[in-house]
Amino acid sequence: MTPTSVARKTLLAAVPLLAALFLSAAGQPTVHVAPMDSVGPRPVEQQTRSSIVRDYLQAWQSMGTALGENRPDLLDASFVGLAKDKLADTIREQRSLGIASSYRDQSHDLQVVFYSPEGLSIQLLDTVEYDVEVRDHGKTVGTQHVRTRYVAVLTPTESRWKVRVFQSGS
């Protein structure tokens, strides 16, 4: 076996691995949703089951972009009330310090734990893994991998569910 053939074989073997790593880094987070059949006190409607997950994951995307670009207006689509106020405050702090943080969610393990009797709030727990990268005036400070649990309360608006309480920790 010549050194050239070894190099070729090594490169060929590395291509699928590199592709998988690349896709995993740039792709959507993996999402697991626990069954909602026993959620109470109000049964979760079929339409709500899909929309609540879709809107919550969209909220993560909105938050990631808003904190990464320091643009509080991007929160409007997915956040309301308390959650929006707190995230907007953080963005203002970041902007005044010249800091930006990028949140890249990698996996979500979602469990709906409460759907209020009148259908006006739904609470879910999310064991989430994400990377947070911090930049100071454009220079990378560092990146950390985080695994934690989020508690989110979503409330219905005219067109979608929006996150009203968004808090990590146990």
């Binding site: 090594t10 790593l21 880094a25 990377d131 990268e133 560092g142 990146t143 950390q144």
Partner: peptide, 18 residues
């Protein structure tokens, strides 16, 4: 190969330092 892996997956660099 090592260079490609590090450039393509910046998260890994972060993990290492974290």
């Amino acid at each position: 190969c090592a260079l490609i892996v590090v450039v393509t997956v910046p998260g890994l660099a972060g993990h290492a330092s974290a």
